[in-house]
Design a protein around this nucleic acid. Structure first.
Length: 476
RNA sequence: GGCCCCGUCGUCUAGUGGCCUAGGAUAUCGGGUUUUCAUCCCGAAGAUCAGGGGUUCGAAUCCCCUCGGGGCUACCA
């Protein structure tokens, strides 16, 4: 059984890079008919941000990445929150000490700081000097009995090497001598991430560890732990990083990094999924537009790219436009709801939606593109009503004639169009000139949905009113 | 600094020794459709496959070196 997991720590918003990892995990699990579990790795209470666990779950839910086991849904291997598993970590950490795979360290943060400073000053590599490694069992016990603050550190072998076969990178090897004696259990009784992941993954029967490349250097420590516990080593797949335009790890200074920000900016979850899926992976047939179901069908870990991917907002915008255009107008109206002022006439919105569907990049664009349908008074520069080479009088005449025409014309697209084309001819104007003047008079702007559709939605009464207002403007 | 990873159009990528005078997508530019803006369609430009050495009849694909970029180097994750 294929089992993988998403193990975020609740330290803030659901980061786009982490979510991309979650997506890959989800797709791999679904493709393999396996399980996708969510586990909250809250091992650092000092960095924990209240509410972020909920936001992470909200983000996953918004994308439709349902977890099979985890908070809220439960499962056979819970609890799925690290802070509720403290006893386990403590028990196993002590076991490691007994088996001589770990040791108590009583060094104070101050001493550690000094050691590090001295090393750096001497041009050495900063790392723990293994001061407490040699402490005898008896001495440790005495100091423990005195309730002296202590951590438990991994006793890394001094020689030899450790390697593993990464699904995306192939064989990766590290020298034991380069590995630091990692703290496993902190003095506050909490585990570090390194201890917690290994234990949790084992107890939750995780056999595929899919995570970002930033974890590659700590993998040997985890491997050592598996070895110490004599547990079967899982498969590893280290995903390429998601970078900002400057090719550094995607972060706040590059702009929006929270999945929820994209939701609030009017991006569709299906666009987000499609875009993220192609950051470091591509289907065999080279298609760009794939639904979640298609992604599940085609996804495979061995097609994951090794090199990092730059997050390209332009391409995201393109995907979003594609998916907006695919929506049924009815459905689009639904999705638009959170982005539309509550006092807008629902029926009118329904009529407006088909007119701007091809013009939306994000859902948020709706309001700015269509406000003239909903406001009473239009604000615009009357110069826009006067087409190039025309006099004020001519412009006025054109609009006055338009009023007459609107009042008697059949209220139907083709009828309106042919009537206005004739009017242009009668006036001796180019159709484009007349249409633009009308467009400005009716909408107050020069870029709008098609003229006659707009008229019909606006309604005869409002059209007449606005044309008259335009004539009035010119008379001022 | 040390360790590890990576290096094909600006960007996402296809490519696993001959099908590559390197394909697709996006962005850019031009054209067409069109009442504007979009959409849509067509086209162009854009990568001496980071550079240099090998191996081979033949290399983007294999090996080595150099350079460049990134990640890690916490009682953070």
């Amino acid at each position: 059984m294929f089992r993988t997991r998403f193990a975020p720590s609740p330290t803030g918003e659901p980061h786009i890079g982490n979510i991309r990892t979650a997506l890959f995990e989800y797709l791999a699990a679904r493709h393999q008919d396996g399980k996708f579990v969510l586990r909250i790795e809250d091992t650092d209470k000092s960095r924990e941000v209240p509410g972020s666990k909920e936001k992470i779950m909200l983000g996953l839910s918004w994308l439709g990445l349902a977890w099979d086991e985890g908070p809220e849904v439960g499962g056979p291997y819970g609890p799925y929150v690290s802070s509720e598993r403290l006893d386990l970590y403590q028990k196993l950490a002590k076991e490691l000490v007994e088996k001589d795979w770990a040791y108590y360290c009583f060094c104070s943060p101050q001493r550690l700081e000094e050691v590090k400073k001295a090393q750096v000053a001497k041009g050495e590599i900063p790392r723990y000097d293994r001061h407490c490694r040699a402490l005898s069992r008896e001495e440790c016990q005495i100091r423990l009995d005195k309730e002296e603050k202590a951590v438990i550190r991994l006793k890394v072998p001094e020689t030899g090497e450790i390697s593993f076969d990464d699904i995306v990178r192939g064989k990766v090897t590290f020298q034991n001598k380069d590995i630091d004696d990692q703290v496993l259990l902190k003095s506050d009784g909490y585990p570090t991430y390194h201890l917690a992941v290994v234990i949790d993954d084992y107890y939750m029967k995780i056999n595929y560890i899919i995570r970002a490349e930033e974890w590659l250097p700590s993998t040997p420590k985890h491997l050592l732990l598996y070895q110490a516990f004599n547990w079967e080593i899982p498969y590893y797949a280290h995903l390429p990083m998601v970078l900002g335009p400057d090719r550094a790890k995607l972060s706040k200074r590059h702009g929006a990094t929270s999945l929820l920000e994209y939701r609030d900016k009017g991006y569709l979850p299906e666009a987000m999924i499609n875009f993220l899926a192609l950051l470091g992976w591509s289907p065999k047939d080279g298609r760009d537009l794939l639904t979640k179901e298609e992604l599940i069908r085609e996804f495979s870990l061995d097609r994951i790219q090794k090199n990092p991917a730059v997050f390209d907002k332009d391409k995201l915008d393109w995907f979003n436009g594609q998916y907006i255009r695919k929506l049924e107008p009815q459905e689009l109206s639904e999705r638009l709801k959170p982005f539309i002022p509550a006092d807008y006439d629902k029926e009118l919105v329904k009529k407006v939606v088909p007119l701007i569907q091809d013009r939306l990049v994000t859902l948020k664009d709706f309001a700015a593109l269509t406000d003239f349908f909903f406001v009473e008074k239009l604000e615009y520069d009357k110069k826009l009503l006067i087409q190039k080479g025309k006099t004020v009088e001519e412009a006025k005449e054109g609009l006055e004639k338009a009023v007459e025409l609107v009042e008697k014309s059949a209220w139907e697209h083709d009828a309106l169009e042919s009537a206005f084309r004739s009017l242009a001819e009668e006036l001796g104007w180019k159709t484009g000139e007349l249409f633009m003047a009308l467009r400005v008079a009716l909408t107050g702007r020069t870029a709008t949905p098609p003229l006659f559709e707009t008229m019909i939605v606006l309604g005869r009464e409002k059209v007449v009113k606005r044309l008259k207002e335009a004539v009035g403007k010119l008379a001022e």
